[in-house]
């Protein structure tokens, strides 16, 4: 089940909405994406940073997991 651009846009909207009062969080997320694209960090690096950034937001973490390659997953604390 390959994700589409619309899925990415929808997820990004969800992040923006949840952190509407903390725009810095979304900016931090964009920084992580930039570093990933420039290959400053790899997939495990992204996972580490995103799991810290979205700590306490299991829905965002589960949404993010859908974009990870097989074998990678951020564990959600329950």
């Amino acid at each position: 089940q390959r994700l589409k651009v619309e899925d990415a846009l929808s997820y990004l909207d969800q992040v923006k909405l949840q952190f509407g009062s903390q725009p810095q969080v979304y900016n931090d997320f964009l920084d992580i994406m930039k570093e990933f694209k420039s290959q400053s960090i790899d997939t495990p690096g992204v996972i580490s940073r995103v799991s810290q950034l979205f700590k306490g937001h299991p829905d965002l973490i589960m949404g993010f997991n859908t974009f990870l390659p097989p074998g990678y997953k951020i564990e959600v604390q329950t």
């Binding site: 390959r2 994700l3 651009v5 997320f29 994406m33 990933f36 694209k37 859908t66 990870l68 390659p69």
Partner: peptide, 19 residues
């Protein structure tokens, strides 16, 4: 390891475009 969907998410986040 390739992460095509993560790359797609990054591209959409940064440019709004498909890779």
């Amino acid at each position: 390891l390739a992460a095509p969907q993560l790359i797609m998410l990054a591209n959409v986040a940064l440019t709004g475009e498909v890779n």
